[in-house]
Design a protein around this nucleic acid. Structure first.
Length: 415
RNA sequence: GUGGACGUAGCUCAAUUGGUAGAGCCCCGGCUUGUGAUGCCGGUGGUUGUGGGUUCAAGUCCCAUCGUCCACCCCA
């Protein structure tokens, strides 16, 4: 091999084994989402860079250091989308749907973040996301969470737990932020450098600092839950009682903080401890202010995204559909007839491989390797008699049949 | 972006203190003519991730680079 040609760091190929799992996940998602009347959208992978600067937030890691952003040949500043919500809001506004009532959307596709790769953390990864627009009140949050839980359940992913929190809103967060900043400034010298930087830029992020000495200082730190306004409090209560009504288990984790600026009120995460450090498998929350901040009317919104590759890592391999029959042609004279037979079998809906002729041994080995149920042998005798030899590989039983009869045996799929 | 582990055949891995690169699996073929899965025999396949350096001699030591993995960080 000359100079090795390989994919870009952190960008992996979807080979058959992996894609089979993805398709399984997609099928379950489509089925579950359909029962909530959610419609699929397919949105651009390239977006204007400014979209994410204005929505996700200029100070966030995603925007400030992880975006694949560049100028195109015309001098436009564009980027590969790092997440799906901003583009969905952009499309919602661009299509003029703000007076069209509730919109319930889902999407699946690749996202791009230039991070240091790890297991469960790729530079190109796939998300399945759901966004609701113009849907008010905690009932939407409750039903969305139940749906997310059902999605994970139907996939067979058991070992996750749901953590929820409230982040307040534009009415109450500024006051809380002040309270928190005051508290943090009093202890600034005991906090790590990163935390000190964040006191001014994003004090809520200090709360989930992993540093032990920081955490020790933050034991009695003021928590959002206790400082939200009456409306937010009512929303959070509605969320909790709704989850109780549906028997959805959850724990309130006052330290959940979203890394994207647009979230308010409800924030949630389904986490697992089976993926090492990348334990969040599905997460989201409310973002009631985003539509307005991107130029639309005040519009409530809530959504989540799940990481396809992370879900796939929690699932066993999906067995490939089993081959019904391998057509083995013996001798060049029988090739034309064998090709017609293979074609006819496929038209009956059977899964067929033509072994390509050659020795009987070679073709039987192919059938064996492909895990075929039957081998259909066509040689001089079969062509002469106008039939086929059909052998069941597991039992070794073999008989001569007219083609129609062989088709019936194959279609029965009972052996 | 920071710190660490690792990179040998298609795959999983060996190779004493530097001394001629090996095994298993897979693949291809043979063990009488049109019959597989077990067995026996044989074969293909490597400039040891890449590029430099030290040495009589480098898979082994040193430097750089690329990649994978782990932790930090971040998040799906």
């Amino acid at each position: 091999m000359a100079k090795k040609l390989q994919s870009i760091r952190g960008i992996h190929d979807g080979l058959p084994t992996e894609v089979a799992k993805w398709r399984n996940i997609e099928d379950v998602a489509r089925k579950v989402f359909a029962s909530h009347a959610i419609s699929e959208v397919r949105l651009p992978i390239l977006e204007p860079k400014s979209l994410f600067v204005r929505s996700v937030g200029e100070e966030t890691d995603i925007v400030s250091k992880e975006m694949y952003a560049f100028e195109d040949q015309g001098g436009d500043h564009i980027c590969l989308r790092p997440e799906g919500t901003a583009g969905a809001v952009r499309a919602y506004l661009q299509a003029g749907l703000t007076r069209a009532g509730a919109q319930r959307w889902f999407y699946m596709g690749p996202m791009f973040r230039r991070e240091r790769p790890q297991k469960g953390r790729l530079r190109q990864f796939q998300q399945i996301g759901v966004e609701y627009f113009a849907v008010n009140g905690p009932v939407a949050d409750v039903e969305m969470l139940r749906m997310a839980q059902q999605f994970l359940d139907e996939l067979g992913i058991q070992q996750t737990r749901l953590e929820i929190n409230t982040l307040g809103c534009s009415a109450c967060r500024p006051a809380y932020r002040e309270t928190l900043m005051t508290y943090l400034k009093e202890r600034a010298e005991s906090l790590c450098a990163t935390c000190n930087d964040r006191i001014e830029t994003n004090p809520m992020r200090v709360l989930d600092c992993k540093n032990k000495t920081c955490q020790a200082q933050l034991l009695d730190a003021p928590e959002v839950v206790a400082h939200v306004c009456d409306d937010c409090d009512a929303h959070f209560s509605g969320l909790k009682s709704g989850l109780d009504a549906l028997a959805v288990d959850y724990t309130v984790n006052p330290r959940i903080v979203r890394g994207l600026d647009y979230y308010n009120r409800t924030a949630f995460e389904f986490v697992t401890d089976q993926l090492g450090a990348q334990g969040t498998v599905l997460a989201g929350g409310r973002y009631d202010g985003l539509v307005e901040s991107l130029g639309g009317p005040a519009t409530s919104a809530v959504g989540f995204a799940a990481g396809m590759e992370r879900l796939a890592m929690l699932l066993p391999d999906v067995p490939e559909p089993r081959l019904d029959v391998v057509v083995a042609a013996l001798g060049d004279e029988s090739l034309p007839y064998s090709l017609r037979v293979a074609d006819a079998l496929r038209q009956q809906g059977l899964i067929v491989i033509h072994a390509g002729g050659g020795t009987a041994k070679r073709q039987f080995k192919i059938a064996d390797r492909e895990n075929s149920r039957f081998v259909l042998v066509i040689g001089e005798d079969e062509v002469a008699k106008g039939g086929v030899m059909l052998k069941h590989l597991k039992t070794g039983k073999q008989d001569f049949y007219r083609l129609d009869d062989a088709v019936q045996i194959l279609l029965a799929r009972d052996v």
